Amino acid sequence: MLRVGLTGGIGAGKSTVAARLAEHGAVVIDADRIAREVVEPGTDGLTELVSVFGEHILTAEGALDRSALAATAFADDAARERLNAVLHPRIAARTAELMSRAADDAIVVHDVALLVENGLAPNYHLVLVVDADEQVRVQRLAETRGMNAEDARARIAAQATTAQRRAVADVWIDNGGDRDAVLRRVDAVWADRLVPFEAAVRQRRPRPAQPPVLVTPDPEWPEQAERALARVRAVAGERAVRTDHIGSTAVPGLPAKDVLDLQLVVPELADADALAEPLSDAGFVRVPGEWYDHSTDGESSWEKRVHVGADPGRPVNLHVRPADGPAWRLAVLFRDWLRAVPEEVVAYTQLKRRLADDHRDDADVRAYADRKQPWITAAFTRAEEWAARSGWSVTTR
């Protein structure tokens, strides 16, 4: 299934987005609803809360008095930890149960208010963030919850910042204006991104080859790369020796194809093969066949594995390389050398533009890449010389 995280600050209106996605057929799992379910009258969750905090957290009817619980459970960090120890395992178990019921081709939308605050973003194939201007949110909270402006702003301030949410957002949905415009935006995300993304993961369908088209450097490339790398690390776990954003999109000011090149270094190729299915499940589909990096002398080659991102909205190449080979170090060296030597960026840009123009009608980038390789091979020598002069060491980066 495709796992989509949906979040947004209080008053942003993510329920509007969740409802629209449900209309399209998404399986929506509401974390707030689950949190209420696990402490309903008659549940062991409520029984344990009473055991921990006392009978005074119950209403006369035997239901949970949320105000009384909050006054006790949020009095100090120790009390909050006791509350979390009761709630979090039950919420997690119920969430897993609901996800397990979803069909193999389902698009599961997990509606989580504190997705950012709890560091959950890497667990999803995609994260959607719903936002609105603070004044709009304050007004909504006054109208829907009777909250005064001071309390509303305090609640907003206690949550993740806009910058923190942007850092994890694969899709940003502005819900501060016309409702129909928001619904059209959600419709487009569903049709153009979520549906093809799910199909590509389930069918293990690599991204189709494309001709080499260079674009102006995007300042958001590094942030997009970090989101993807966080997902890679979440899958690879202890097998990840290191992860890197490499290639042209990792060099400020360098025109590039709008495809992020990422690197996962594992102890040996057997680890890469063990991760083939987990990475594919996470949206990085293994590309069949044999893949090699060229040596600096142009005579030998080093084996690797290649995965590509299945997200149609963010093309990614993931190179999985063994730690006992030299290729991963050269990839990092080449990136850092270009970042440090502007004249080499100019020379590389000129080469890339000329070759991209020569191969603009090609079905894919292989001929373009092959013609770049002699320059890159020679550049490795200059990069090593720079490393020796500057004291660069991959272990310090």
Score class of each variant (00 low, 15 high):
residue 369 A to C: 15
residue 253 G to Y: 07
residue 326 P to E: 04
residue 377 T to G: 08
residue 183 L to N: 10
residue 247 G to K: 02
residue 357 D to F: 05
residue 328 W to S: 10
residue 331 A to L: 06
residue 273 D to N: 12
residue 268 E to C: 09
residue 227 R to E: 09
residue 357 D to K: 14
residue 238 E to F: 09
residue 58 L to W: 06
residue 377 T to S: 01
residue 249 T to R: 10
residue 143 E to D: 15
residue 201 V to W: 05
residue 143 E to T: 13
residue 314 R to E: 14
residue 260 L to W: 07
residue 308 V to S: 03
residue 264 L to M: 12
residue 251 V to R: 02
residue 311 D to F: 03
residue 202 R to G: 11
residue 343 E to R: 15
residue 264 L to H: 06
residue 352 K to Q: 07
residue 46 L to I: 00
residue 391 G to C: 02
residue 72 T to W: 11
residue 221 W to E: 06
residue 93 A to I: 04
residue 273 D to Q: 14
residue 3 R to S: 13
residue 66 R to C: 10
residue 274 A to R: 00
residue 271 D to S: 06
residue 162 T to E: 15
residue 149 A to S: 14
residue 136 V to F: 01
residue 143 E to C: 10
residue 28 V to Y: 02
residue 165 R to I: 04
residue 394 V to F: 05
residue 204 R to F: 03
residue 36 R to S: 11
residue 150 E to D: 13
residue 158 A to L: 07
residue 260 L to N: 00
residue 22 A to P: 01
residue 125 H to T: 10
residue 105 D to F: 06
residue 103 A to N: 05
residue 185 R to W: 07
residue 350 Q to Y: 08
residue 352 K to T: 12
residue 375 W to E: 12
residue 47 T to Q: 15
residue 195 V to H: 08
residue 390 S to N: 01
residue 43 T to D: 03
residue 182 V to K: 05
residue 89 P to N: 02
residue 331 A to V: 02
